[in-house]
Simulated scan of single mutants.
Amino acid sequence: MTEGFPVNPVTLTMLRERARVAGLLAGPDVAPLEVVDVVELEILEGTEIAGLSLLDALEAKEKAALYRSNLRDFLIMEYELMRPSRIGSTLWR
Rank of each mutant, 00 (worst) to 15 (best):
E3A: 11
E3M: 06
G4C: 03
F5Q: 05
F5I: 12
P6R: 01
P6C: 01
V7E: 10
T11E: 02
T11R: 03
L15G: 04
R16P: 07
R18W: 13
A19Q: 05
R20G: 00
V21Q: 14
V21P: 01
L24F: 13
V30E: 11
A31S: 07
A31C: 02
P32A: 03
P32L: 07
L33M: 08
L33H: 07
V36C: 04
V36E: 08
V38G: 04
E40I: 01
E40P: 02
L41Y: 10
E42R: 13
I43R: 09
G46S: 07
G46I: 01
G51P: 13
L52D: 08
L58F: 06
L58I: 06
A60W: 08
A60Q: 14
A64P: 03
A64W: 05
A65R: 13
L66C: 02
Y67P: 00
R68G: 03
N70K: 10
L71C: 01
L71V: 10
R72V: 03
R72S: 08
D73P: 02
F74S: 07
M77R: 15
E78F: 05
Y79G: 00
Y79T: 03
Y79D: 01
M82Q: 15
R83V: 00
S85Q: 09
S85H: 07
S85L: 11
R86Q: 05
R86G: 00
G88Y: 05
T90P: 02
T90K: 15
L91C: 00
L91H: 09
W92E: 03
R93Q: 11
